Computed example of a mutant assay.
Amino acid sequence: MSGPSRRTLARALEALADFSDPSAALEQYLTPPEIAAHICHQARMQDDLAGWVVDLGTGTGMLAIGASLAGADRVVGIDVDRDALGLAEANAERIDEAGRDGLLEWVRGDATRPPLSVDDTDVTVVSNPPFGAQRGNRHADREFLETAQSIADVSYTIHNEGSQAFVESFAADEGGNVTHAFRAEFPIAKRFEFHTDAKRTLEAEVFRIEW
């Protein structure tokens, strides 16, 4: 299947800007270009880009733009934060091909209750949900999985290390099946006062689920 290589995607996504004033409550971190490229390349290889691609909690637009560059027919990025959507749109403008033919759209709304009507449409969800690291935000990734299950045929989601048993159990309970899983490094620069290291690397896990 023709399309940009994973390496080409990653190089293009490296041009995207990070949050200038990220929200700790929303766990706003830049999705690493390498992880986004891996997800979007895998989605293309699995023929998961033919319908709608919905990026839940799009943030900087990294996954949505990556999916568009990888050849998705239509991409919608959803975020509750107006400033994040402005950043995502600006990032898309940095890469002209990502906004081709008006097929890349940005929608303000709660990613766990997306304002979309996707009946009779093939949907692939891509998402880097909150890991639930902040107090009061535990298991935030579960809500994103619940949304993916409700609207998607296939989903690609990023989770904290050690999530495989939870994700596989959740998918099985909802009639889904984890078909692919891989580990990925998630570098995080010091962005908030509670960060004690100039930079640290989290081990993350990515799962493809057929619903």
Rank of each mutant, 00 (worst) to 15 (best):
G3E: 12
P4A: 03
S5N: 05
R7E: 15
A10G: 02
A10T: 08
A10C: 06
A12S: 13
E14F: 07
L16R: 00
D18G: 07
F19P: 01
S23L: 04
L26S: 05
Q28S: 05
Y29L: 10
L30F: 15
T31S: 07
P32T: 04
P32D: 05
E34P: 03
I35H: 01
A36V: 03
A37F: 01
I39V: 10
I39C: 02
H41Q: 05
Q42C: 14
Q42S: 13
M45E: 14
M45P: 00
D47A: 14
D48N: 11
L49W: 02
G51Y: 11
W52S: 04
V53Y: 06
G57H: 03
T58E: 03
T58D: 04
G59F: 05
M62V: 12
L63I: 01
A64T: 04
I65M: 09
L69V: 10
A70L: 07
A72W: 02
V75P: 03
V75K: 02
V75M: 05
V80F: 04
V80W: 01
V80R: 09
G86Q: 12
E89W: 10
E89R: 14
A90C: 06
A90K: 14
N91D: 09
A92V: 08
E97L: 14
E97Y: 08
A98R: 04
A98Y: 09
G99S: 14
G99Q: 13
R100T: 15
E105T: 13
W106I: 08
V107R: 15
G109R: 11
D110M: 10
T112L: 10
P114Y: 12
L116M: 10
S117D: 15
D120R: 08
D120A: 10
T121M: 11
D122E: 11
V125F: 02
V126D: 00
S127G: 12
P130D: 04
G132Q: 12
G132K: 09
Q134E: 15
R138Y: 13
A140C: 13
D141T: 10
D141I: 12
D141A: 14
L145S: 03
L145A: 14
E146W: 06
E146I: 11
A148S: 15
I151A: 04
S155T: 06
Y156I: 01
H159R: 04
N160F: 03
E161N: 07
S163R: 07
Q164N: 07
Q164I: 04
V167G: 03
F170S: 08
F170I: 12
D173H: 10
D173A: 15
D173W: 04
G175H: 11
N177K: 11
T179W: 03
H180P: 01
H180A: 09
A181K: 05
F182L: 10
R183V: 06
F186N: 01
A189H: 13
K190L: 09
R191N: 07
F194H: 15
F194S: 13
A204I: 07
V206W: 00
I209L: 05
W211N: 01
